[in-house]
Simulated scan of single mutants.
Amino acid sequence: MKKLSDEEIQDKLQELEGWTYAKNAIHTSFQFENFKEAFTMMTRIAFEAEAMQHHPNWGNVYNQLEISLSTHDADGVTEKDFKLARAIEKIIETTN
Results as ranks from 00 to 15, higher is better:
residue 1 M to D: 15
residue 5 S to V: 00
residue 8 E to N: 06
residue 10 Q to D: 01
residue 11 D to L: 08
residue 12 K to W: 05
residue 12 K to A: 15
residue 12 K to L: 15
residue 14 Q to W: 06
residue 16 L to T: 00
residue 16 L to M: 03
residue 16 L to Q: 03
residue 18 G to A: 09
residue 18 G to K: 15
residue 18 G to T: 10
residue 24 N to P: 01
residue 25 A to S: 15
residue 29 S to W: 09
residue 29 S to K: 10
residue 32 F to E: 11
residue 32 F to N: 07
residue 35 F to D: 03
residue 36 K to L: 14
residue 39 F to N: 05
residue 41 M to Y: 06
residue 45 I to M: 06
residue 47 F to N: 08
residue 48 E to S: 09
residue 49 A to K: 03
residue 49 A to M: 06
residue 50 E to S: 13
residue 52 M to G: 08
residue 53 Q to D: 14
residue 55 H to K: 05
residue 55 H to M: 08
residue 63 N to K: 12
residue 63 N to D: 09
residue 65 L to A: 13
residue 65 L to V: 12
residue 66 E to F: 10
residue 66 E to G: 14
residue 67 I to K: 00
residue 68 S to R: 06
residue 70 S to V: 13
residue 71 T to F: 05
residue 72 H to I: 08
residue 73 D to F: 02
residue 73 D to W: 01
residue 73 D to Y: 01
residue 75 D to G: 08
residue 76 G to D: 06
residue 77 V to Y: 08
residue 80 K to D: 13
residue 80 K to P: 03
residue 81 D to N: 04
residue 85 A to W: 01
residue 87 A to H: 12
residue 87 A to C: 15
residue 87 A to I: 12
residue 87 A to P: 08
residue 89 E to Q: 15
residue 91 I to L: 07
residue 91 I to H: 02
residue 92 I to P: 01
residue 92 I to G: 03
residue 93 E to A: 15
residue 93 E to W: 03
residue 93 E to I: 06
residue 94 T to G: 10
residue 95 T to R: 10
residue 96 N to K: 11
